[in-house]
């Protein structure tokens, strides 16, 4: 992501910063850079090209994210930007930045544990409450308000909370 003295790279860094600042419409505190959804930005002689990768196969936010990237780049003077969806390598919650995890927690959503993979999908037995920090919590529903979240409850402060599922 760091800019190099190459003049082409400066434009790329700018495009990356602008595209990366687009937020997830479902979780507005997270940018697509935080999520790890932004995979590549290419600037050449033609229009800027941006690669994004879907979180879940059926995530309805992806279409909106693509449109918002185009709008943001056009507004910044990048003409006719093109957004591609790439499937490889497959997105995992491990790509979420530390900054993103902290922002999620502040927003009241328990972040996914690090170390994805199949074991982590089901190995989670403690999810600290994002409100009070207690680990005396339990699952209410495995499928929450969006594809990426489950609904949990804290037995200490009695607050329900969303948990960003490991993927």
């Amino acid at each position: 992501m760091s800019a190099t003295p190459d003049p082409g790279e400066d434009r790329r860094a700018a495009a990356w910063r602008i595209a990366g600042a687009v937020t997830d419409p479902e979780i507005p505190v997270l940018t697509i850079a935080d999520l790890g959804v932004l995979r590549d930005v290419r600037v050449g002689d033609g229009p800027v090209e941006v690669d994004i990768t879907p979180t879940y196969c059926g995530c309805p936010a992806m279409n909106m994210i693509a449109v918002e990237i185009e709008l943001a780049l056009e507004k910044a003077g990048f003409g006719r930007p093109k957004v591609n969806t790439v499937l490889q390598p497959a997105w995992t919650t491990d790509w979420m930045s530390e900054d993103g995890r902290a922002k999620l927690k502040d927003y009241g959503i328990a972040p996914p544990p690090k170390g994805g993979g199949r074991r982590a999908l089901f190995g989670v037995d403690t999810v600290p409450c994002p409100q009070c920090g207690s680990i005396d919590t339990g699952v209410i529903a495995d499928f929450g308000s969006t594809a990426c979240k489950a609904l949990w409850r804290c037995n200490a402060c009695r607050e329900p909370f969303d948990y960003f599922k490991c993927h």
Binding site: P54, Y56, C57, G58, C59, P60, I140, A141, D142, F143, G144, S145, A147, L151
Partner: peptide, 16 residues
């Protein structure tokens, strides 16, 4: 809760 679960599972499948 099942309303959400069924819709979410359906969405996963349609995405696939």
């Amino acid at each position: 809760e099942e309303e959400m679960a069924l819709a979410n599972m359906g969405l996963d499948l349609i995405g696939q």
